[in-house]
Amino acid sequence: MAVPSAHEFHWQSLARLSSGRVYHTLSEVGGQMYMLGGCDTAGRPCPGLEFYSPEGDRWISLPPMPTPRAGAAVAVLGKQILVVGGVGEDQTPLKEVEMYNTEEGKWRKRNSLREALMGVSITVKDGRALAVGGMGADLLPRSILQQYDLRKDMWALLPSMPTPRYDANINLIGNKLYVAGGRQCKRPVKAFEVYDAEGRSWTTLPTIPCKRSYGGVVWDTAGRLCLLGGLRQGGGHQSSKFTKNVNIFDTNQGAWLKSEETVALKTKRADFAAAFLRDRMVVAGGLGHEPSALDTVEAFHPGRKKWERLAPMTFPRCSASSIVIRDRLLVVGGVNQCSFVPCHTL
């Protein structure tokens, strides 16, 4: 299949949210998008659950979560949405776990985590949720790996990660759970590890070449981890700097590509939307060296080995949530010069 040209991508403005939102979580069930929680314009975690209806181009309010929260980890188990941890109204981590049945339109409380956690990373394997790491109420990172069984409504502990962290980037390829980066006490970590679900063991992989935070993370269809842009952390007393650096790890080779084999972004940026869309890596918006949020968009053409400009976003933004559904990148909410911005699709 031919890689689409830059001219084939365009933005479409969708229905505005009922209110501004950041740190919300997007989820897909049956090709439909749901938005859970987040912080409102006053910075308070909210219990909202909303469904986007493409037919009417509108947001539909659904029964709210029992527990208001922002930055929750979300996993889809069949037709049900499992919501784990996050930050509560008192700005501390949560241990509450709740599940929404999209067919019944009802919430149910589930067995809580062993301790309150925020910054949990979650995925699904064989119908069970795997929750990785997190930060506890003491603000320290955790190395915990736990598995949720829906039928038993039970959390089981699996072998812990070698490196404690929260906000890690995870991806499941076959029986291998890759865990890259994350943070410890607000500082980014370079640790990269993989869990073998069959052997129930962890292996340490070559560390991330540079420390960065608020970068883009894309896993392509070839099983490669691509780390894009972000704030690069200097050594000693050096301040963080925006970067256009790109690092790529090939899981088949078990190594990071050499710098001459990668192509840097056109624009230095952090806190942007990133996705693998129609065989191309795409980055949109974020913060850079401009005084306000960026509206610029670029996509990597693998044949030409270059980043190309795409049509800019109608609403510049950073701190937005994004998700790919049916070959469309949906970018929801976010901030632009302290104002909240609506929904957008590419």
Rank of each mutant, 00 (worst) to 15 (best):
I173F: 10
Y148R: 03
G235A: 15
W256D: 00
C39T: 12
A70I: 03
R269E: 05
S5I: 01
A222T: 12
F192M: 11
W155K: 00
L225C: 10
C318Y: 10
H301T: 04
T203L: 04
Q12H: 09
N247I: 01
V132T: 07
G127R: 15
A222W: 15
P63E: 10
E28F: 07
G285M: 07
G333P: 01
K186Y: 02
R328Q: 10
T41G: 04
L26W: 05
Q32L: 02
Y214S: 13
E198M: 06
N101Q: 06
S112T: 02
K306Q: 13
E55W: 15
M65T: 08
P291W: 08
K176F: 14
D167M: 10
P164N: 06
S143T: 09
Q184A: 08
T123Y: 05
R128L: 04
A270P: 04
N101P: 02
P4I: 05
V341M: 06
T345R: 13
G235S: 12
E103N: 07
H344R: 10
M65L: 10
K244H: 05
R44G: 01
F51Q: 05
R21L: 12
A116W: 15
T123E: 14
K125L: 12
W219D: 10
N336F: 09
Y23A: 12
P209G: 07
E89Q: 11
F192H: 11
A42N: 04
G30L: 03
C343L: 08
V179S: 05
V341K: 15
L172N: 02
A156P: 00
R128N: 14
A274D: 03
L139R: 11
L330C: 07
H289N: 08
G85T: 02
T207C: 06
E98H: 01
R151G: 00
N169D: 09
A299I: 13
W256A: 00
P4G: 14
M118L: 05
T41M: 14
G56V: 08
G215R: 00
R232Y: 01
P4T: 15
P188N: 12
V297I: 09
M161S: 02
R187P: 00
L77V: 08
K125W: 14
R114F: 14
R224D: 03
T262K: 04
A42W: 06
V120R: 05
A116P: 14
R44S: 07
P159F: 12
P164S: 04
G236N: 15
A70W: 06
G71R: 13
A284D: 10
S61V: 11
K306L: 15
N111V: 08
P164V: 10
P68R: 07
M281T: 06
S213H: 01
M281L: 14
G78N: 07
F276D: 03
G235F: 15
R128G: 00
G134R: 03
E50K: 13
C185L: 08
G216N: 02
M135Y: 03
L139D: 02
N101A: 13
K305E: 09
T296P: 00
N252K: 10
S27I: 14
M135V: 05
S240G: 01
P45L: 13
V22E: 08
F9P: 01
G134M: 11
M65A: 11
M161R: 11
S27D: 12
S322E: 07
Q147P: 00
L77W: 14
